[in-house]
């Protein structure tokens, strides 16, 4: 469905020299490589997370895949089209939801935007809109001006706009940002359902790792515009999240100062010892502590995806 080969994007910015006659002096040119030699492919029906720290090149990649901006070099096809040509058939095959930007006409009731989208994309199935409105439970809001909607309601409307013409590929740029718990779970359930039932290919960028863990089987991770990981989301966690912390609550006061595997004492708080170990060495670590102390309770703390990703960003 999506094939990207050696994709590059370099932004060139020009800055005038300061001062009254600064414009007369030669401009200072700055180059910034947002995406470097990116190659990957995505099969139809996949739900892929595109992760990375701020400025890693996620949104730039999505913008290139949707044809909004042109790449500096490299090739790509999306749904059988070249995004750079921006053919109308291509535009009908894709959809892009950007949480930070709205596609709704803010000065009009949302119903008008739905009508506009239906007209522009020649939507024949009028029942689909009703179904989507019912699915998101916003029937009483469609006559409200988009400006007056809450963030959650607006995001639901944005999603309706994007799914109304049933595109083959959907790009989502942080769709759950700023949403409350209920709205997040509603959006997630809808995305999961669409991906499973309609087989829509979905590419998601987010900083919310719960979204990734719940929705995406595959993760592509970018760092400074370069791909640093491409594989199963669980695999990502296993490779980089092998470490675990074991909390021991013991009877007596603690006098343990290991700093070699299988036990590395992370910290000691009163009668609590936090030991850092790996999955493989967990049993040995527990034995070692139990040999020295009377242990009342043992708690395991697994590294979650956020921590894994956080570590990767730092690296």
């Amino acid at each position: 469905m999506i094939a990207v080969k050696n994709l590059n994007k370099t932004f060139i910015s020009q800055k005038s020299s300061p001062g009254l006659f600064g414009f007369m002096k030669p401009k200072i040119e700055k180059k910034f490589e947002a995406v470097k030699d990116l190659t990957f492919s995505i099969q139809p029906g996949e739900f892929v997370a595109l992760l990375g720290a701020n400025g890693a090149g996620k949104t730039t990649t999505l913008k290139m895949l949707t044809g909004i901006i042109q790449p500096t070099s490299g090739g790509m096809t999306v749904a059988g089209f070249e995004p750079t040509k921006r053919q109308n058939e291509f535009k009908k095959a894709i959809s892009f939801v950007m949480a930070q930007k709205s596609q709704l006409f803010l000065e009009l009731p949302v119903k008008d935007t739905f009508e506009f989208i239906s007209e522009v994309y020649c939507v024949q199935n009028s029942k689909l809109l009703d179904e989507l409105i019912e699915r998101f439970n916003i029937g009483d809001k469609i006559d409200t001006h988009a400006r007056r909607l809450s963030l959650g309601q607006r995001m639901k409307c944005e999603l309706i706009c994007s799914f109304l013409y049933q595109p083959k590929v959907i790009f989502l740029d942080e769709p759950t940002i700023g949403l409350d718990v209920n709205s997040v779970s509603e959006v997630r359930a809808f995305l999961k359902e669409t991906n499973h039932i309609l087989g829509t290919t979905i590419i998601l960028t987010t900083h919310n790792m719960d979204d990734v863990e719940e929705l995406c089987e595959r993760t592509i991770m970018l760092n400074n515009g370069t791909k640093i990981f491409d594989g199963n989301t669980k695999e990502l966690k296993n490779i980089f999240g092998d470490e675990r912390i074991i909390e021991f609550i013991i009877d007596s006061s603690v006098n343990l100062s290991h700093s070699t595997p299988p036990i590395i004492v992370e910290k000691i708080e009163g009668q609590k010892i936090y030991v850092k170990t790996t999955k493989k060495d967990s049993a040995a670590a527990i034995n070692e502590v139990m040999n020295h102390y009377q242990v009342n309770e043992i708690n395991f703390k697994e590294t979650n995806l956020s921590e894994v990703v956080g570590k990767l960003y730092v690296q």
Binding site: T66, G67, K91, F96, M98, K101, S102, V120
Partner: peptide, 13 residues
Amino acid sequence: LSGSFDYILLRPI
């Protein structure tokens, strides 16, 4: 300026 022009570029018009 607001960035919503990106959506216009995506429309088949």
